[in-house]
Nucleic acid binder design. Structure first.
Lengths: 351, 351
DNA sequence: CTGAAAGCGCTTACAG
DNA sequence: CTGAAAGCGCTTACAG
C-alpha cells in the first residue's frame, strides 16, 4: 500500500494524496475527506524513508548517553541517568519527535554521533553523561545540527573551539547549590568540613569542588588536604577513601559529598565503624536520588532537578530545530537544599 | 557529498561505490582500496533513508515502554525500567542496530507501535511494561514483524488470538520465585503469612498471587482474606493497606510483598508504628531493586534478572530479524532468593 | 485546485 | 569485474 494505491482508490493523483497528508491549504474539503477516508480504510501510513528522501525532516533526536568511566556498562545503575532518558523521550514524543538512544562507552564511540548525522538518521543531538566531552565535540558542533549538552563548562566552548551557534548548554547551578550546603553546615557551627570530590572531568565535579574551596576560604576556614577525599563520583573509590579517613582517627565534624552515591558509601563505612550520623559526623550529599529519602537516617542533600533539566533542554533543542535561528543558548537551573536527618549542630555532637 | 560524488572522485561508477560499501565479493582489492580512500577522505556516510528505500533493512528496533497505570509520567521512578532500556540499547548497539524508544501512557498510544511499523521506521519491536497488553497487540502481532514481549502470559496468545509466529515472550519464573520465598518463610516456622499483591493486570502479578495461594494450600495453611493486601505494585496503595492491617491489631508473622517497592512501603509503616522487623514481623520482597540491599534492615527478596532478561530478549529479536524463521519462542528465566535481614524464625519473634 | 514529472540518494538485477 | 538504468515511495515546484 503506497501513495499511488491510495491515489487510485480515491480517484486522484499522488500529488493530491501528498497534499492531504501534508495538510496543504489548497485542497477542497470534499477532496480531502475522500482521500482521508481511503487512507483510513487501508490504514495507510507514508513511508518515512521516502518522505525524508524527498525532503521532509526525519523528526528524530539522537540521545547519546555517555559513560566512558564506568567499568560496567550499566548506566541505569546510576539513578541519575534513567530520568534523563525518560525526560527526553517524554518531551520529544509529545512534540511529535522520535528518539534514537545510543550509549557511548568509549572515546571511539563518539563517532556514532557524527555517523548518525552524516547518515541523516537524526536532525539534532542531546548529549548527557559524566565525562569530559571529547575533542570529537568540536567536529560535531560544526556539523550544523542543534546539539544540546547537559553539564558542560561554557568556557570550554571557546577553549575547545566549538561552534557555539548550534549549541544549547543546560547545567544545574552546582556552584550555588554547593554554597548553600556549605553555608548550612557552617551555620550549624562546623569549621572542620571535609569533601568527597567527584570527577574533575565533569563540569559539575569541578564546580562543586571550587565552591567548596571558595566558601571555606571566604569563611576563614582552613582547607585540610587530609579532609579532601577523592571519590570520583563512585562508591567503590569512596569506600577506600573514607576507610583511610577513619583509620587516620582524625575526622572532620562534617562531610560534603559531591553526590549521594558517595554520601551513602561514606555512611556505610561510618556505620561499620560505629561512627554515628549525625552525632559524630554530619554528612550531606548532592543529587537527591530516590534512595536518599529512604535510608536511615534520611540523607540531607542538594536536589538536582534532572528530569526537568533534561526535559527543558529537549524543548530548547526542538525549538532550535524548528526555528532555524542559530544562536548559542545557555541556561542554568537552580538546585534545592533538602534538609533531612544527617546534619546536626556541631555542639550537639560528640566532639 | 553523495555516492555519485564519491564515484566521480574515485573514477568509478555509483554501482561500484555501492558494492564497496556493501562489501560485495566481486570487487578487486585495488578498486576497493581506491574507493575506500575517497570515502574516508571525505567522511562520506551513505544516506540511510536512501538505503532503506532501495531495499536495505532499517536496522532499527522499537522499544516501547508501557506505563498506562502510572499517574505520573515518570517511568524511571520505577527502577525496574531503567535497566530495561539500558539492556536493549546495549545489546542492539553491539549488534549494529539502532533503537527508537517510545513511551506508552495510554491505550491510545499503542497506535504508535503500529504506526512505527507502517511507516517503516522499525523492523522489530520490544514491549516492556506493567500492564495487560491491550487488544492492539493482536493487530501488532499480525503485521509480520518480530515482537519481543516481557512479562506476558503465554496462554493469552491463543486467548487473544495473536499470531505467535512472530512472537518472542520472555518472563521471569515468578511462580517458582514466589514458591522459594514462601517455602523459606514456612521453613522458618511461619504459618500466618500475608501477601501484598501486585497488579492483576500483569502476568507476574497474577503468577505471584497464584503461587501464594497454592503454596499455602499445599502446606495446609489457611489463607485469611484479611492478610491479603492489595498493593497494586504501588507504594501509595500499600501504605493504606498496611495501615489498615496495623489498625486491625491482627498481624501475620510474615508478609510476602509482590515487589520491593511495596515491601519498603510496608516497612515504613511498621517502623512508624513501632513494629520491629524481623522481630515482630518478617517481610520479603520481589525484584531486588538497588535500594533493597541498602536499607536497614536489608530486605530479603527474590531477585529478578531484569537486565539479563531484556538483554536476552533483544538478542532473540535480533536473531529473528535476521533468520526469517517465523516460529514462536518462549523462555522463562529463573529468579534467585536473596536472604538478607528482614526474615527470622517465627519462634525468635515476639509472637 | 490538480496532475505530470523531476528528483531525493541509494541498491541491484541486467547486460556485457 | 563493472557501468547504465530501473526502481524504491515520497514531495514539490511547475504548468495549466
Amino acid at each position: 500500500m503506497n501513495s499511488e494505491d491510495i491515489a487510485r482508490l480515491a480517484g486522484v493523483s499522488r500529488s493530491t494524496v501528498s497534499r492531504v497528508i501534508n495538510n496543504y491549504a489548497n485542497v477542497p474539503e470534499a477532496t480531502r475527506a475522500k482521500v482521508l477516508a481511503v487512507i483510513e480504510k487501508y490504514n495507510y501510513e507514508p513511508n518515512t524513508s521516502a518522505r525524508i528522501l524527498a525532503g521532509k525532516s526525519n523528526n528524530t533526536i539522537g540521545l547519546f548517553v555517555i559513560s566512558v568511566s564506568e567499568k560496567e556498562r550499566r548506566i541505569y545503575q546510576n539513578a541519575y541517568y534513567s530520568s534523563f532518558i525518560n525526560a527526553v523521550v517524554d518531551v520529544a514524543n509529545d512534540n511529535g519527535y522520535y528518539v534514537l538512544v545510543h550509549t557511548i562507552y568509549s572515546e571511539k564511540d563518539y563517532s556514532k554521533v557524527k555517523q548518525s548525522f552524516l547518515q541523516k538518521r537524526i536532525c539534532a543531538g542531546i548529549l548527557v553523561g559524566n565525562e569530559k566531552l571529547s575533542s570529537a565535540l568540536k567536529e560535531i558542533s560544526r556539523m550544523g545540527y542543534p546539539i544540546g549538552i547537559v553539564d558542560y563548562d561554557p568556557e570550554d566552548i571557546e577553549k575547545y573551539d566549538l561552534d557555539d551557534s548550534n549549541l544549547i548548554v543546560v547545567n544545574s547551578k552546582d556552584y550555588e547549590g554547593t554554597t548553600d550546603a556549605l553555608n548550612y553546615l557552617i551555620g550549624l557551627g562546623h569549621r572542620e568540613i571535609g569533601i568527597i570530590t567527584g570527577r574533575m572531568e565533569t563540569y559539575s565535579g569541578r564546580q562543586r569542588y571550587e565552591a567548596y574551596i571558595n566558601v571555606l576560604e571566604s569563611n576563614g576556614i582552613e582547607i585540610k588536604p587530609e579532609f579532601v577525599l577523592k571519590g570520583e563520583f563512585h562508591k567503590k573509590k569512596t569506600y577506600d577513601e573514607v576507610r583511610n579517613l577513619v583509620d587516620s582517627k582524625k575526622l572532620p565534624t562534617a562531610l560534603f559529598a559531591c553526590n549521594d552515591d558517595m554520601a551513602l558509601a561514606a555512611m556505610e563505612v561510618f556505620s561499620e565503624n560505629g561512627i554515628r550520623i549525625p552525632e559524630d559526623i554530619s554528612i550531606i550529599g548532592f543529587d537527591d536520588i530516590p534512595l536518599a529519602a529512604h535510608i536511615k537516617p534520611a540523607l540531607s542533600t542538594v536536589k538536582v532537578p534532572g528530569y526537568e533539566m533534561v526535559g527543558h533542554i529537549t524543548e530548547l533543542v526542538i525549538s532550535k530545530i524548528e526555528s532555524k535561528v542559530r544562536k548559542f543558548h545557555y541556561e542554568s537551573i537552580p538546585d534545592q537544599l533538602i534538609i533531612r536527618d544527617t546534619c546536626t549542630n556541631v555542639r550537639d555532637g560528640a566532639f
